[in-house]
């Protein structure tokens, strides 16, 4: 998780400077017709490769190698504590997994968590982004810091904090919210799927909404003031400005935010691992992969689950990029 944070911050900042990116638009067009390269563009591209190349190669080494190894291992029946009994079984592991209701229920739980958390985060994140955008200069720094605090907390730590808050023995939530119907001192949040998933998702939303609101704030900053002013002059209401001017102009930022969060949410692990360890209908795919490879030491089966998880993530990327036309290069407007 710690290594993921700087990566996210870089992507966030790369979408932030709107005007500069719009200038690059011309570059994107020329790329399609190589003959038109000017010396300057060519020099810039070379510089780009020199600057990004080493990082790109290292990334390939550290990601491609494990992916290939996992694909290879997934074709074997192989238990770490019985190295002598390793046996090639082709796609056998995949057949076992895909014919098992445990996989499908894990998949639905994961999809459910992904959809709900991303939707709620999008709405909340947008509201927070608007507040940060409109806030007075004097409080802007303080406000942004305050909103970002949950995102800075390590997921395991926040998971424990939420767990202990809701835990039936040590928690205070039951007594604080006893006035709500359905909540009393005997409510055991982690004893059934519905309430347990509620806590897991609430914790996830609390922690990652700041991330989405940062991405959306970058999108908001991209909307030219002239457009909103013109709309105001034409007598558009706040809601009309929002719907007709602001949101269409930041579609790219919204889609990037949704894509990144969806990929992240789909791989949810920490919160579930700490709070329920997959008990009572809260099993998610990452945990299923963990249970096979790390707990059972069934490297073959576990690798196959991981490969399938990877394919799911690829599918989400594909759907987002091809069908919703998310432009990861960050061009403006997304038209």
């Amino acid at each position: 998780m710690t290594s993921a944070i700087p990566a996210k911050t870089t992507t966030a900042s790369s979408t932030e400077p709107g005007p500069r990116l719009s200038r690059d638009d011309k570059g994107t067009k020329t790329r399609k017709a190589p003959k038109q390269y000017s010396d300057r563009v060519r020099a810039e591209r070379r510089l780009g490769w020199i600057l990004a190349g080493p990082a790109f190669i290292i990334m390939l080494l550290v990601t491609l190698y494990p992916i290939l190894q996992a694909i290879y291992e997934s074709l074997f029946k192989f238990r770490l504590t019985a190295p002598g009994e390793r046996e090639f079984i082709g796609l056998g592991n995949y057949a076992v997994i895909l014919s098992d209701p445990v996989w499908w229920s894990g998949l639905w739980t994961t999809v459910f968590i992904t959809v709900v958390t991303v939707l709620v985060e999008l709405v909340l994140g947008f509201a927070l982004a608007l507040v940060m955008h409109k806030a007075l200069k004097s409080v802007r720094g303080l406000l942004r810091t305050a909103i970002l605090v949950p995102y800075g907390i390590i997921t395991v730590v926040s998971a424990f904090a939420w767990f202990y808050a809701f835990d039936i023995n040590s928690g205070y939530i039951n007594s604080w919210f006893a006035w709500l119907p359905g909540i009393d001192e005997n409510l055991n949040w982690f004893a059934q799927g519905g309430t347990a998933l509620f806590v897991i998702m609430a914790s996830e939303i609390w922690k990652t909404t700041p991330f989405i609101s940062l991405l959306l704030l970058a999108g908001l900053a991209q909307v030219p003031d002239e457009l909103t002013e013109a709309a105001k002059v034409d007598g558009a209401t706040w809601w009309e400005q929002m719907r007709k001017v602001i949101i269409p102009n930041m579609k790219a930022a919204i889609m990037v935010a949704v894509l990144f969060r969806a990929l992240d949410a789909f791989r949810i692990f920490d919160n579930v691992f700490i709070m329920t360890n997959g008990a009572y209908g809260t099993e998610v795919l990452s945990l299923l992969a963990y249970r096979q490879s790390i707990s059972r030491l069934e490297i073959g089966l576990g690798s196959a689950v991981s490969v399938l998880l990877f394919l799911c993530v690829l599918l989400i990327c594909f759907v987002a990029i091809k069908l919703f036309k998310v432009d990861l290069a960050g061009s403006q407007g997304g038209k």
Binding site: D167, I168, N169, L187, N188, F190, A191, Q192, A279
Partner: peptide, 11 residues
């Protein structure tokens, strides 16, 4: 008790 489904030795 209500805590049974999540109760370990400490609980």
């Amino acid at each position: 008790g209500a805590g049974l489904p999540t109760q370990d030795e400490n609980g």
